[in-house]
Simulated scan of single mutants.
Amino acid sequence: MPELPEVETTRRGIAPYCEGQTIARVRVRNGRLRWPVPEDIAAQMEGQIIRTVDRRAKYLFLNLDHGTAIIHLGMSGSLRIITDNTPAVTHDHIDLTLNSGVILRFNDPRRFGCWLWSDSAATHPLIASLGPEPLSPEFSGRMLFRLSRSKNTPVKSFIMDSHVVVGVGNIYANEALFKAGIHPRRKTGRISLDRYQRLAEAIRETLSAAILMGGTTLRDFVNSDGKPGYFAQSLLVYGRAGEPCTECETPLKEIRMSGRSTVYCTRCQR
């Protein structure tokens, strides 16, 4: 599933081709996504200029003069830029043709993504209750500490809650907890302010590094599959169960939490 770094890489890949361009045509081949694509989305978007391409959590916004298209890539979706009239194939559900001739094409084999329309994206039900961005000034260890006082959930579940902070998916939660030296099952209310400050910094560091590495895939958004690579080559714990810890060489342990793989070091994480 595309996580925040992959979605941010997508935003950076498509923005230079879309911003400032007028939408000449919207073609919806299959509107049966996670939620039905609004029947009037073409009428809403055609003739308008894409002013900015923004991201909130794992949602992408195409901000027009009057309204915003809200896009989510779901489990398998991708956006790519088509410059050579490559014909659409199976699972290419939506095309935005711009006045430059460029096509922004949405592909989603599993159809768990979405294309929605909103007059005010910030107040849309999917967006309004989201927590702060992890790379924003609003996110901090002190904020995590304050919110944790009334909770007794495992810290991994806590930081993956999008009402607490957005974009900390399973891969990056594993990595950040390892860097902060915190056991994924430790109860949120039993973690000190100092340790939350270390965790907040580890989250920022992990996501920033993943975004930077994703930048090397920007060229792939033109006439390609539009899918940035994951952070695999730099993972410290995720996917490495049974391998030695990079810090102490203890074999890493894997457990399941809420149905998700969770890998940690029994010695380094307390």
Rank of each mutant, 00 (worst) to 15 (best):
L64I: 06
L64M: 15
L64A: 07
D65T: 12
G67T: 04
A69I: 14
A69D: 01
I70W: 00
I70M: 05
H72S: 11
S76A: 14
S78F: 04
I82G: 01
I82T: 11
T83C: 07
D84G: 02
T86C: 04
P87T: 12
P87R: 12
P87G: 10
T90E: 13
T90L: 12
T90I: 08
H91D: 14
H91E: 04
L96W: 13
L96C: 04
L96D: 03
T97G: 00
T97L: 15
T97E: 13
T97M: 05
L98T: 02
G101L: 06
L104A: 09
R105Q: 09
F106E: 04
N107F: 08
N107W: 02
N107M: 12
P109K: 10
R111D: 07
R111M: 11
F112I: 05
F112R: 03
F112E: 06
G113H: 08
G113S: 04
W115R: 06
W115P: 07
W115A: 08
W117F: 13
S118R: 01
S118L: 01
S120L: 07
S120N: 15
A122V: 01
T123A: 05
H124P: 00
H124W: 00
P125N: 10
P125G: 07
P125Y: 03
P125D: 03
I127H: 01
A128C: 04
A128H: 10
S129A: 14
S129M: 03
S129G: 05
G131N: 07
P134E: 08
P134H: 07
S136I: 10
P137M: 04
E138L: 12
F139W: 09
F139S: 09
G141P: 08
G141S: 12
G141I: 12
M143S: 06
L144T: 08
F145E: 13
R146I: 12
L147W: 11
S148L: 09
R149D: 02
S150K: 14
S150R: 14
S150L: 12
S150Y: 08
